[in-house]
Computed example of a mutant assay.
Amino acid sequence: MKIRKVETDKKRYLDLLLLADEQKEMIDRYLERGTMYVLEDDGAKAECVVTDEGNGILELKNIAVEPVFQGSGYGKALVEFLIRTYAGRYVTLQVGTGDSPSTIPFYEACGFRRHHVVKNFFTDHYDHPIYEDGVQLVDMVYLQRAL
């Protein structure tokens, strides 16, 4: 398993990016200003994008694992990589996600704790309803962990 930084042509991983953020226009808001990493294990299995949000905050904007490999530890490996890579350079790693029964427990298992909620984020910023695990996402839940 190898994690490498993607410097150019980030959109070649659009299929992976869309697993975590299903509206291309939303991805376009952060992809080029963000730093992208791809986890390879006999081919690309997962990706993540982080952005500098100022005030010592690094935000995990997108993290996705190929569906057939979800639950294999690749997502956790990416989060641990980010913690190692950015510890001492940032104070906090944060992530915003829908209040979903699959994503919140993943982040909590990685040491994140709920921080704040942005009401109606998904209904206000996406052009169609977003569902995850049969639940419509409405509010954005922000979680944070110390670096």
Rank of each mutant, 00 (worst) to 15 (best):
R113M: 13
V38I: 15
P105C: 10
T8Q: 08
A44S: 11
G54Y: 02
L78P: 02
T92Q: 09
G111V: 11
G134Y: 04
F106I: 04
M26L: 13
E25V: 14
L78I: 14
L14F: 05
V91C: 14
V38F: 07
T51K: 09
A109N: 13
K61C: 15
L82G: 07
E40V: 03
S100N: 04
A77H: 02
L78Y: 04
E80W: 02
L82N: 01
I104K: 03
E22M: 10
E80P: 00
R33D: 00
K2I: 13
C110E: 01
L147K: 06
D139C: 12
V49Q: 13
K24Y: 08
P67D: 04
H128G: 02
D41G: 03
G111D: 06
Y37M: 08
K11Y: 10
F106R: 00
R12P: 00
L143Q: 07
L17P: 01
V95Q: 05
R114C: 09
R12Y: 00
V38S: 10
L17N: 04
E32H: 05
L16T: 01
I3V: 15
V95W: 05
G34K: 14
V49F: 12
I63G: 06
K11I: 12
N120I: 02
E40L: 05
V65Q: 00
K10M: 14
N120Q: 09
L147A: 10
V65G: 01
L143K: 05
I83S: 12
K76M: 14
Y90N: 05
G43M: 05
G73A: 08
D133L: 03
C110W: 01
K76C: 13
V50E: 07
T51H: 02
K10Q: 13
A87F: 09
L82H: 00
V141Y: 08
E66N: 04
E7N: 14
D52C: 06
G73W: 02
Q144E: 15
A46L: 10
A77L: 10
T8F: 08
K61P: 01
R4Y: 06
L18Q: 06
Y13C: 10
V49R: 10
D21C: 12
R84Q: 13
S72N: 09
F122T: 03
V79L: 08
H128I: 08
E59F: 03
E22Y: 03
V79F: 07
P67S: 12
S100L: 05
R84T: 04
Y142L: 14
C48V: 03
T97M: 13
D99V: 11
K119S: 12
A44V: 09
M1R: 11
P101E: 09
S72A: 15
Y126W: 06
G73T: 04
V50R: 13
M1D: 04
C48E: 02
V68P: 00
R89S: 08
C48I: 05
A64S: 14
R12N: 09
T8K: 12
Y74G: 05
L93E: 02
E47A: 14
E66G: 01
L143W: 04
Y86G: 07
Y90V: 06
N120P: 00
G111R: 07
Y90F: 15
Y74Q: 01
S100Q: 01
L18V: 09
E132Y: 08
D15V: 05
H128C: 08
